[in-house]
């Protein structure tokens, strides 16, 4: 059984990788198996974790679960075209609850705390004597302050990007692009890691060539 599982994993891994050569039946088979299994996995997980694990096993202790179950049932009414509109109510509930939760969280974590973290002295350490601060610290502060400020200018939609404002916006997009470059580098690392993981499986677990 272990041999079969290893060979099946390797067969599917190579099948997906074969897409790099070109679209082919091997890839299509692997893709279909992947899509089918993952869709099935989600159905099973949600059924056992939500419907059984959470609702069926828990309604005695928490009658409020019936409210959720009722909203979930309303969602299914979409299947009946005549009263399908009722399914918008649970949808409204989801959108409303999520917005309520995130409004405060975003404002607090992504705006207030970040604005606070941006407010830092441009001349670091040794303030009393003025400009004798380390250049590294000064540049680092400048990058954070100027980058955040001009980035905000770029995403300000109420004013045309002209004149000094336009200049600031251009500096902003410059910073944004540098950030994207760093991000790109990190993602290359991430993707390579996934490939390394598969290579380790193929050459190590499957063929036993590496330790």
């Amino acid at each position: 059984m272990e041999h079969f599982a290893l060979w099946l994993s390797a067969f599917l891994t190579l099948g997906i990788l074969s897409f790099l050569y070109k679209d082919n039946p091997w890839y299509k088979l692997s893709e279909a198996i992947f899509v089918g299994i993952s869709a099935g996995f989600w159905v099973v997980t949600l059924f056992w974790d939500n419907l059984v694990g959470k609702f069926w096993d828990g309604w005695q202790d928490e009658p409020m679960l019936f409210v959720g179950a009722a909203l979930g049932f309303l969602m299914l009414l979409r299947l009946v075209p005549k009263i399908g509109w009722i399914s918008r109510w649970p949808l409204a509930f989801i959108v409303g609850a999520t917005s309520g939760l995130w409004l405060m969280n975003y404002l607090a974590s992504n705006i207030m705390v970040q604005v606070m973290a941006t407010i830092q002295p441009l001349f670091s350490t040794g303030y009393a004597s003025g400009f004798d601060a380390g250049w590294g610290a000064i540049i680092s502060s400048l990058v954070i302050v100027v980058g955040t400020f001009t980035g905000l200018v770029y995403f300000f939609f109420s004013k045309e990007h002209k004149g000094a404002f336009g200049g600031a916006a251009r500096v902003g997009i410059f910073f944004i692009m540098i950030t994207f470059g760093a991000s790109f580098g990190y993602t290359v690392m991430s993707r390579m890691s996934l490939l390394i993981g598969r290579m380790d499986f193929l050459l190590g677990d499957w063929l036993g060539m590496i330790g």
């Binding site: 830092q120 002295p121 001349f123």
Partner: peptide, 23 residues
């Protein structure tokens, strides 16, 4: 945009204030 304007003004004011205060 009003929110962003508040953030921009705060950053400007804050940076000027903390720099003048500390230096």
């Amino acid at each position: 945009d009003v929110g962003k304007a508040i953030a921009m003004i705060t950053i400007l004011l804050g940076v000027v204030a903390v720099t003048l205060s500390e230096a």
